[in-house]
Amino acid sequence: MAEHTEHTTPTPTPATTPVNLAHKLSQFSELWSQKKIADVNDCEVKLAKLKGEFVWHTHPDTDELFLVVSGRLTLQLRSGDVVLEAGELFVVPRGVEHCPVADEETAILLLEPAGTLNTGDAGGPLTKAAEALG
């Protein structure tokens, strides 16, 4: 007779090393290229470096959190611009058309559901999937 073995789901081991944003940002130089640095539930935490103007787009099904790590970011909205300095964040609500603009190189942290495209519904040549950053 076979022994009954109870199946249990292993408890995830918590990370023991904090993520240093400055170190992660030093690992890449590409502009407008999102780098995934962590997962939170069904969301990805991503870093990006921006300079210039992106593309007008919306994310019909999700909000998008922008946190400026360094530099200055203008989020153009049809209702008026939102200017973010280092240490400030703004959540663009789902369905709100926006266009990020950075006059100087700016580093940002993004929080959005896994698989969210950077160009939202606009598509085009700037569309890139987030790359994991080791």
Rank of each mutant, 00 (worst) to 15 (best):
G95I: 11
G123S: 08
K128V: 12
G87I: 07
P18E: 02
A102Q: 06
D81K: 05
P10M: 07
L75F: 09
G120Q: 06
D63W: 10
H57P: 00
L77M: 10
G80V: 10
E97K: 10
A122V: 05
N20V: 12
A130Q: 05
A38T: 01
P93G: 05
W56Y: 09
E88S: 09
L110R: 01
E104P: 00
T58K: 15
K49P: 01
E53C: 01
N20T: 10
A86C: 09
E104N: 08
L77I: 08
A114E: 07
I37Q: 03
H4T: 13
W56G: 02
W32E: 00
L31Q: 11
A122I: 04
S29T: 15
P10N: 05
V19S: 00
P100I: 05
H4E: 10
E85T: 10
A102R: 04
G52D: 02
H4N: 11
G80S: 09
V55R: 04
T16L: 11
E112W: 04
G71L: 10
F90L: 04
V69T: 04
L73C: 06
L126D: 11
V40R: 05
G95A: 11
E64Y: 13
N41P: 00
E105G: 01
A86W: 09
P10I: 09
H23A: 14
L50M: 14
P125T: 12
V83N: 02
V45D: 00
A114M: 05
T9V: 14
L133S: 04
T119Y: 08
L111W: 05
A48L: 11
T127G: 01
S29A: 15
D39C: 06
V96C: 07
A130M: 08
E85W: 04
H4D: 08
L117A: 14
C43K: 12
